[in-house]
Amino acid sequence: MLAYAVRRIAVSIPVLLVSTFVGFVITSLSGDPVKNFATSASPPPTQGAIDAYARRLHWDEPLLERYWIWLTGLFRGDFGPSVNPGRDLGADMWTRFGVTLRLITAAIVLALILAVVVGVISAIRQYSKLDYTTTFLGFLFLAMPAFWLAVLLKEAGIWVNEQAGTTIFYTIGEHSPFLEVDTAWNRFTDTIGHMILPTISLALINFASWSRYQRGSMLEVLNSDYIRLARAKGLRPRTVLIRHALRTALIPLVTISAIDVAQIMGGAVLTETVFQWHGFGEFLVRSINEVDVYGVLAWLLLAGTVVIVFNLVADLLYAVLDPRIRYD
């Protein structure tokens, strides 16, 4: 298992390299910070200032050269110069990345739990009222724009707070700007409190399609011969369901959720925008708006790393779930 994990990580490195290059080309296509500087500032900067600006961003180098400078800089922990001299990309991004990572991990875990519970129940009680309700809800959430649902939940949270006359749901920011009693425990509960609504809104969107997959794979497994055999041997229904059926039926969900991680990373940008989090999403939006190419690159690099790590976890989970798969 360990050897396999190490080998997988080794294989991931070239993949990550290629994807950083693709990201580099994409960001270079997306805008020219030097042109933006030359045309948007007033009064117009002198040619000397433009040249100095281009040199600071390595924009006077050819694309491949620029990529090499950026890539080698990464090993020194340098994420490249920002268009805004006062903005230190490296210092700005780590806390923000942590905030977003917290959100997407919580949302994925919540969505997985919901998807498994709902998927299994609607597979066992196929064509029951519950099955139809969850099927309908699944289609509804699949058709619902993530940002709309987030705004809706935020409004619902505000409404509940007004009714209760006290803050039950936090609707703005990733934590309170200051705490009256600043202890570690208070900080922890405050953070959790702020996470509730954004996590639910991000989880619901993904839970919809995941529970459909879970239902489908559960039905397939329940109708297979080995489950019939397990039942015929007189195993308790509970054991059959959980130990024999569910374990195998989880494999497709693991695959599909690992594939969806990239899209959740993107979707988190919407959720964070609605709940006004100072997260990695805001970092991306600001970088795009300011044509801050190295900021965009930093986002793509970390998002790519997250995707690779989650896929690695998925691969290792296969070994846990499927007794036929052995990594050695």
Partner: peptide
């Protein structure tokens, strides 16, 4: 397929 579609589209949509 591994690119976060929304984010990359947002980056490219600047143009």
């Amino acid at each position: 397929l591994t690119l976060p579609l929304l984010a990359v589209a947002a980056v490219l949509a600047g143009n």
